[in-house]
Amino acid sequence: MSTLLAQSGRPFPDWAWFDERNVDRLRDLFVEHVQLTGLALLFGLLIAIPLAVAAVRWRRLYSPLLNLTGVLFTIPSAALIIAVFAFLPVQTFGLKPRTSVLALTIYTLLILFRNTVAGLDSVPRDVTEAATAMGFRPSRRLLRVEFPLALPVIIAGIRIAAVTTLGLVTVTAFIGQGGFGQLFITGFQRQYTMEVAVGVVASVLLAVLVDLLLVWAERALTPWSQSRGGAT
């Protein structure tokens, strides 16, 4: 395998790749990778949650919104498609991070919306019923009862969105961003396997790390969860 990967006279793995310049570059790419993903997630959440609440509250919106996101989800499964779609109104957006963020936001939005809806739907009826009967107003019930109980499913959605986006963000390298994805393009141009591999490993490691962080956050936020030990 390593001979296969050692093309163009460069060995693989080639630890010499980690010189000062490349380490600096790696740090910059890390920042970009995190920024693009973070912004996409943030915007996705800001839009998805109100939308999901609306869908659950006003049942008439429920089916149309779910069907719409179902179709949209089919279309942009590879963010490549959206990246290019979003790239089209170049006059307005240009080759700037906001183009990538827009594309990725649409993607996270779909995952987050569906999971938030699923989460809110998973709240047991007898619990919401009891809340209403005790005199919760709808807004307070949403905030104090439904959201906390939907949290595990919502966080599961954030995990999927985060992990997937951390992988997909590399594709925006085609329009000049892409975080670690830039290493793919330059590595490809130079036929330098190590450079591409560093990009792959870095983005996967980051995804695993973020996923663990989110698992930890979920535990911290849902101390009542049944799936944990300590239940009698």
Binding site: P124, D126, V127, E129, A130, A131, T132, A133, M134, G135, F136, R137, V145, P148, L149, T222, W224, Q226
Partner: peptide
């Protein structure tokens, strides 16, 4: 209705306890 309900105790078969609140917090709801 909200005020009305706060003045009327309500117990159902499924109980509808809040899974995310402890016994004390559940009792403290109203």
């Amino acid at each position: 209705p909200v005020k009305l309900r706060r003045d009327i105790g309500y117990v159902i078969q499924q109980i509808g306890l809040f899974p995310h609140r402890t016994t004390a917090e559940n009792i403290a709801t109203v």
